[in-house]
Amino acid sequence: MQRIGKTVWKRLKANRQTLLWIVISFATLLIAWQVASMLSQGRVQIPAPLEVFEAFFRSMTVPIGKNTILEHAGISLWRVLLGFVVASVIGMAIGILMGVSPKAHAVINPLFEFVRPIPPIAWIPLSILWFGLGSSNKIFIIFLASFTYVTINSYEGARNVDPKLIGAARMLGASRRRVFTHVIFPSSVPYIFAGLQIALSVSWAAEVAAEIIYSQNGVGWIITMGMNNGNITQIMVGMIAIGVIGYLLSTLMRVVEGRLCRWNRQET
């Protein structure tokens, strides 16, 4: 994590102008927020940024419900991680299988295309009935959210391998298995990573949605509780946590991708 932080910092340092625009962009948001908060006095309640940030940092040590915000974030992240990893492994396997085997594609794709348009949120009622009210139903929703993107991209990756490279490996004496491990898989990595990146963002959104509908902890729960108690500051604290974590997750994926797909400049 520290190394990734360093890499991000190094990039920002190398591009001071980018850093400047980031500062300007956040400063604009904060000023607009402050102004909106001042203008809204007595009408719609918009807490001032300072008040929200104060509550945000306080919640790191003072619990909201039973947990501090860091613990809530940890619980949410753990669910995302479980669902995302399982979906990634299965999605990659099925996607690549469809990419290399027209028969597998012919059998799996119709089912996949039928299930794909159903948004993960639509599965929440079923998942609660199937898996109960604990973490399992959320992990199931995260699995569904990630699975689609990883599968599609892995399929595209395996399907778009340059036949010339497969031919070259064959000529150099590669067995079918080695063609897979040494050509098809590495060649698909940029596609797979693009899928993983979207999948992780979507997983995070699905997790929050599932927590908002029913949960006893997690960052989505903070928002629901804030709404139930009319505590707008708490709602905004929860939203900031969601935004920060979402941003960190996508940055993390970009850095990992940059390292693994250095050869693929369009992607890095």
């Binding site: 490279l165 031919g167 000529m171 693929n264």
Partner: peptide
Amino acid sequence: VAYIFQEYSTMPW
């Protein structure tokens, strides 16, 4: 047997 053809068949990764 090694086979070299006109298109460059280096592995980009």
